[in-house]
Design a protein around this nucleic acid. Structure first.
Lengths: 141, 141
DNA sequence: CTGTATCCTGCCGGATACTG
DNA sequence: CAGTATCCGGCAGGATACAG
């Protein structure tokens, strides 16, 4: 048991091995979190319909605050999923568009979201079943 | 200005309309968050390879704590995505398996994760470009 | 309109210890 | 092995005000 394979450290030196998100040190983890995060997923999905301005996104993603939307868009732009183009002037006008990579990811996201939405009745049923079952077992004091 | 169309409230009365996750009050939001969340997505993906025991999941999803794994599994079980079967005895033996719905969702998730991992080089390049650009513009005081 | 800055709170989630 | 219980620090993120 001198080697359990959990600590491979040759992460530099031209290693083109596949990124493994299951490794806690993998750089793909942050990106996956931006993509799948509470707001990132909805923001990307909203933009999949085409170019939108800041407040248009804000209106589509119900409940997001200015601050969080700003953060989210910046993270996505930094990861190369969203393109931001600002033409200076008055009033300010800033467009957000998905990059090609962003579109590919958003497509998967939409697929996932669509599935979840369609199966919500089943989910709600499962929840009720779970709750009643658990309530029956744990008689609360 | 008496009506801007943002508040439609006919959400009861036999409405079988699609759940809309963009609405902040939609019950699909929590479920989507369980699915796409930091740990939920990895847990579902880990289970897509087949039945696993608690600590087997734990080992696969590098970095997750017992507490969080427990929470995550319970949330997914409640939503009907994971099935938990415990045969009593000593030592305890508990199996976690994806339900059919869980498998469908995990498949989408794996697809998404695979894409993200494959495009990580592009993401890292974009990040470098973004960082250098921003650093050049914001001379910090 | 498009954001940044600031304050503040809740809860996420890590560490640890313990039970069956 | 499979969890639950408890403590607690950090930060996500909401509200608000303000700047360009």
């Amino acid at each position: 048991m001198h080697s359990d394979g959990t600590t491979e450290e040759h992460t530099e030196a031209g290693s083109e091995r596949a990124f493994n998100v299951f490794d806690r040190a993998c750089p793909s983890r942050p990106t996956l979190e931006h993509v799948t995060g509470k707001w990132g997923s909805l923001t990307l999905s909203a933009l999949s319909s085409g170019t939108l301005r800041f407040n248009e996104v804000r209106r589509r993603v119900d409940g997001i605050s200015e601050k969080i939307l700003s953060q989210t868009l910046r993270a996505l732009e930094r990861d190369g999923l969203v393109h931001r183009s600002a033409q200076p002037g008055n009033p300010p006008w800033v467009d957000y568009t998905l990059t090609e990579l962003g579109e590919a990811i958003a497509a998967r996201l939409l697929d996932l979201i669509d599935l979840v939405q369609r199966q919500m009745p089943e989910v709600l049923t499962a929840r009720n079943r779970y709750d009643t079952t658990q309530d029956a077992q744990s008689h609360r004091p």
